[in-house]
Design a protein around this nucleic acid. Structure first.
Lengths: 343, 343
DNA sequence: TGAGAAACCCAAAGCGGTTTGGAAATGATT
DNA sequence: AATCATTTCCAAACCGCTTTGGGTTTCTCA
């Protein structure tokens, strides 16, 4: 059942039927009702391929997920972000297009999306500092919203981000207030923008209290459980171990906890841990009381809002770039306590 | 730059240019070279919207991710499966379309995909026993491949699955061989097909050795860390606690470990744990020696192959449904040991 | 040398919608 | 009753490709 058939069944022209269904004013309300009813009865849905060609719009948003050949890790927050964004797209009648691409081919992927016309806009994931994609997308002329920020990008662009610096600053202050002085930072890869900002917040808080920054208490790597375990274990076996850890993800924190327990120490008493918590649906930080004291910000909600921003940019082009900053909540859980007194 | 422009630049008709680019035989090789070169030079890429309308194919595969309003958990294996499938699609020139939908609207989503013509086929995720989607998709007439199986589906269909029953049977036998007799099963939701099969393997192994099946040692729920923790803690505080746990996912296992350590017990000595491990990229089971003894099967590889099967089904229609079974490896790690002797 | 086959290319009709530019019918105004 | 504006609808062009059904050349072979 296509438009022409529906039109002939109704004794109307395709033009009128199309207009009736799309809410154009130049059609009698009575006729419109009749058309709507017939469309529903024959469960007619317009062919998306034809609409896309005719309107020149893709009615789809692209998400590019990069997979490096070296460390082929899929970002675990991806699923939740996508789920949030997908809710928005469903509501607005957009499709979501996912492309898995080797990081070297990412620019080519954007260009292809633009010239082949498969998407109307793009969400940029996991920005690095001075991320080249932003300039590229400007040059290609594809609307986009960045989840995160990229320091040092020359032009203005739309983004949505957690206040990572502030979050880690507050977390560090919280530990300092508890008497901790040797606080380790188990960070993500520090060419990622969020990781840089978190470190800066951490260092700033230490500096403000005159606590010396010890580079040997800072690690940066892909955020896995084993990384957390290895890093924490190495630090805890030193003669001057840290009394607290500030870590960049729940998964790292789980590894840190494993190391702590392996050393026969007790989490929240002998060693404190604060983690960032993306509020992932499959990895909740406890039910009532949080397992880990955490800086929390829902990545799912970020997905929802990023999609909204992008669709808004597409619907109202020519506006100034929008930005949106989330403040992470500091949730106090069972993994922090006063610094143990020597003895 | 579109086909018509490129053709006029070359002094050829659009027909010839189209044929040259698509490898049809009725064009001179010299002409073809000339066309290819010009296409590359002007970096021409055909408009996908036009191709789709003209060919009647969507060149896209749909993945539907359901989000229940009650327990809105995004399946954590989703990201890795998608990454695997995406590799295949990229290689074959297909797009991947992701739809997030409330579980009640899933059938409507399939129907819409079919009539609007946005996809050529569908991957069905997380099948339940007697899953209604299979009959629905047959009736709608959309090619599909199921990741998992659905017992009791009336018609034959293509699927790809891990041998869950065998995996859990072997894992149970392994624990029995170590002298364990009170083995708990912390399973996923048992309306999910995989969970049923795992329980069946577990029960079968126990029965074969004449070990009585104790329903109070079996739990079934959404696979989260907190669930694992709660379930294990409850069982460990009983007067007759289990000496081993068989669990359905790494994330559950992490919760179980937390409970074990909270009770002051040692994993692999006082209590043994075997988990199923989907080999998720962000949650590797240790680097050299596995943390957990596990039944392992890569969900990323499953994604790759499921996509290949579906594209094959689409390219060669009318064939019998294909099926593919993976055997999980039993990886011995640090979480299992002989059953502690009473004393 | 002429006929038939093969190779090479093209005009035009599609795919299924949207959108432009009227035309006919109706209503309002003088 | 004539005029003009509105309302309501339609024919046809268009989006950018693919594909059908020829039409020319060139090649092959008797």
């Amino acid at each position: 059942m296509n438009l022409k058939e529906l039109a002939s069944k109704l004794g109307l022209s395709p033009t009128t039927v199309s207009r009736a269904l799309n809410g154009y004013p130049e059609v009698n309300e009575v006729t419109r009702e009749r058309v709507m009813a017939a469309a529903k009865r024959h469960n007619y849905l317009p062919n998306a391929r034809a609409i896309r060609l005719a309107t020149g719009r893709a009615m789809a948003i692209g998400h590019v997920i990069t997979v490096s050949t070296k460390h082929e890790i899929v970002n675990p927050i991806f699923a939740d972000f996508i789920a949030g964004a997908g809710e928005t797209y469903s509501r607005m009648g957009y499709d979501m297009l996912l492309t898995v691409v080797n990081d070297a081919d990412e620019a080519a992927a954007y260009r292809s999306m633009k010239t082949r016309g498969t998407v109307d806009g793009i969400i940029v994931h996991a920005p690095r500092t001075a991320d080249a994609r932003i300039a590229r997308l400007h040059e290609i002329g594809l609307p986009f919203v960045v989840h995160g920020r990229a320091t040092g990008a020359p032009e203005a662009y739309s983004w949505l981000d957690v206040n990572n610096r502030r979050a880690f600053q507050r977390a560090t202050e919280f530990l300092l207030d508890l008497g901790h002085r040797r606080i380790a930072l188990i960070n993500g890869l520090e060419f990622m923008d969020f990781a840089i900002r978190r470190r800066s917040g951490y260092e700033q808080a230490l500096a403000a209290r005159g606590v010396p920054i010890d580079p040997t208490l800072m690690r940066s790597d892909e955020m896995t459980e084993t990384y957390g375990h290895r890093a924490a274990l190495a630090m805890l076996t030193r003669p001057d171990p840290p009394t607290a850890f500030l870590v960049s993800s729940m998964i790292i924190a789980i590894g840190v906890r494993r190391a702590i327990e392996e050393r026969g120490l007790k989490l929240g008493r002998d060693v404190s841990v604060i983690t960032h918590d993306d509020d992932l649906s499959y990895l909740r930080n406890g039910d009532d009381v949080p397992i880990f004291t955490a800086t929390r910000s829902s990545v799912r909600e970020a997905g929802r809002q990023a999609a909204e921003m992008l669709l808004d940019n597409i619907a109202n082009p020519g506006h100034d770039p929008q930005t949106r900053m989330f403040e992470a909540e500091l949730m106090v859980g069972l993994s922090t306590g006063p610094a143990p007194t020597k003895g």
